[in-house]
C-alpha cells in the first residue's frame, strides 16, 4: 500500500499504539494483505519496534502476510455447522477451487479459510463470502453458488 494512505490511516487513529489492531484491520481490508513494507512503515509512524507489529500480524487470524483473495471465503466450522455437515461443504469448496484451507487462488480472486463460528448456528452449515453469508448449505447448493460466482467474476480454477 502506498505510504500516503498508511499515513492517513495512522493519523486518523491519532498515532495511538492502542489503535494498532484497527489500523491493521483497515490496511488488511483494503490491501488484502499486510506487506513487509506496510508493517515497517506502521512501526515507524507509531514509533514502536517492528517486531511488535509483526508479532500481532501473525498472532491474530484476521491478518495475513500473504495475499488474500478479493473474495474471502470463510467456512464455519463451529460445532453446530460441524454436526450438520460442514465437512461436506468444506470438501466441495476445496475441490472446486483446488485449494487447501488458508490458500488463495493463483489469480488472487478467492481465498479459503476456516472460522470457528459465524454466530448463525441455527441455519448452518454457513459459508461467508466476504460480507455475504450463505446459510443452509449442502454439497449441491454450494456448487451452484460457486458456479454463479465463477460466472460473475470470470473463471478461476
Amino acid at each position: 500500500m502506498e505510504r500516503e494512505k498508511i499515513k492517513r490511516i495512522v493519523s486518523k487513529h491519532r498515532h495511538e499504539k492502542a489503535a494498532i489492531l484497527a489500523i491493521l484491520h483497515e490496511i488488511q481490508e483494503e490491501d488484502k494483505q499486510l506487506e513487509t513494507e506496510s508493517l515497517n512503515y506502521i512501526a515507524q509512524l507509531l514509533k514502536i519496534p517492528v517486531a511488535n507489529v509483526y508479532g500481532l500480524a501473525t498472532f491474530y487470524s484476521a491478518f495475513s502476510l500473504g495475499k488474500k483473495g478479493d473474495t474471502k471465503i470463510r467456512v464455519c466450522s463451529g460445532i453446530s455447522c460441524h454436526i450438520n455437515g460442514a465437512d461436506e461443504v468444506n470438501e466441495a469448496l476445496k475441490s472446486k477451487f483446488n485449494l487447501e484451507m488458508g490458500e488463495t487462488t493463483w489469480d488472487e480472486k478467492f481465498s479459503l479459510e476456516k472460522v470457528h463460528c459465524l454466530g448463525l448456528c441455527s441455519i448452518g452449515p454457513n459459508v461467508a463470502f466476504n460480507l455475504v453469508t450463505y446459510p443452509k448449505l449442502n454439497k449441491e447448493r454450494i456448487e451452484t453458488i460457486i458456479e454463479i460466482l465463477h460466472k460473475r467474476t470470470g473463471d478461476s480454477k
Binding site: K17, A18, A19, L21, H25, F59, Y60, A62, H116
Partner: peptide, 24 residues
C-alpha cells in the same frame, strides 16, 4: 473496538492485552 479473530482474547486479561495493542 474490533478484535482480531482469537478465542483467548475473550479471557478478560488477554482481552486487555489485545486492547493495549499486544498479543492476547
Amino acid at each position: 473496538i474490533r478484535g482480531g479473530g482469537s478465542y483467548v482474547c475473550g479471557e478478560e486479561t488477554a482481552l486487555m492485552d489485545s486492547l493495549e495493542g499486544e498479543m492476547g
